[in-house]
């Protein structure tokens, strides 16, 4: 619990907040602050070589939720970042970026459509923005679970875990949130 409080404080104390503005299709567009990509844990996760995910949720005072999902994977051979964005419009955007600075610039451009036009907007009310950093993807999680099971039990690939200990180890592989940021921002004109 204390870790969460610390993380929340970190989020609140973060100098630069994301900005939320109305998009061309009456949805909301989120611009992420460049400082987010300089945060120690974010840097660590997006440089790990695993597919780190930034799960963005936007909640209004009535509890309606919007959001987007950013997956970043650093490719150490080519030394580039593979970025994939899924937003509320249902579109998938893929980019290959050379540096974190390029990544920060990309997300400042207003590519994240986080609010559906179907939702009625209360322009005078603040929105809660939350970004959770997940260190790896579901596919990588499944791959590691399978590998661990095979390694512990000495099974061939595709085998089914039979022993209790293998199951325990396999089920222990979860995707923990390493960092979480929270802001309350109003809608920019």
């Amino acid at each position: 619990m204390s870790t969460w409080i610390l993380l929340l404080l970190l989020g609140w104390q973060h100098g630069e907040a994301p900005s939320l503005s109305e998009g061309p299709d009456r949805g909301l567009v989120l611009r992420l602050p460049g400082a987010l990509f300089e945060h120690k844990d974010v840097v660590k996760q997006i440089n790990s070589g695993l597919t780190a995910a930034l799960v963005v949720t936007v909640t209004d005072r009535e509890g309606r939720i919007g959001g987007a999902r950013i997956a970043v994977r650093y490719e150490p051979w080519d030394e580039v970042y593979h970025v994939q964005v899924l937003d509320m419009r249902g579109t998938e955007t893929k980019r290959v970026l050379a540096t974190r600075t390029e990544m920060a610039d990309f997300f400042k451009k207003g590519v994240l459509h986080v609010w559906s036009a179907k939702h009625r907007l209360h322009r005078d009310q603040p929105f809660a923005i939350r970004i959770k950093v997940l260190p790896f993807s579901q596919r990588e999680q499944a791959d590691t679970q399978a590998w661990l099971t095979r390694t512990v039990s000495g099974q061939r690939p595709g085998g089914v875990p039979t022993m209790g200990m293998e199951l325990i180890l396999e089920r222990s592989i979860k995707r923990p949130t390493t960092t979480q940021f929270e802001w309350k921002v109003g809608l920019k004109p």
Binding site: S48, G49, L50, P76, W77, P135, F136, E140, Q141, D143, T144, W147, L148, G164, M165, I168, L169, R171, S172, I173, K174, P176, T178
Partner: peptide, 28 residues
């Protein structure tokens, strides 16, 4: 390189779940 990378990825995932593995093991 890819082989090492895959292993490193698994290793990192295990590190992320160290506490989880320990607590699950203890629970079991």
């Amino acid at each position: 390189f890819e082989e090492l990378k895959q292993f490193q990825a698994r290793y990192l995932i295990l590190e992320h779940n160290r506490e989880q593995i320990e607590s699950r093991f203890e629970l079991a």
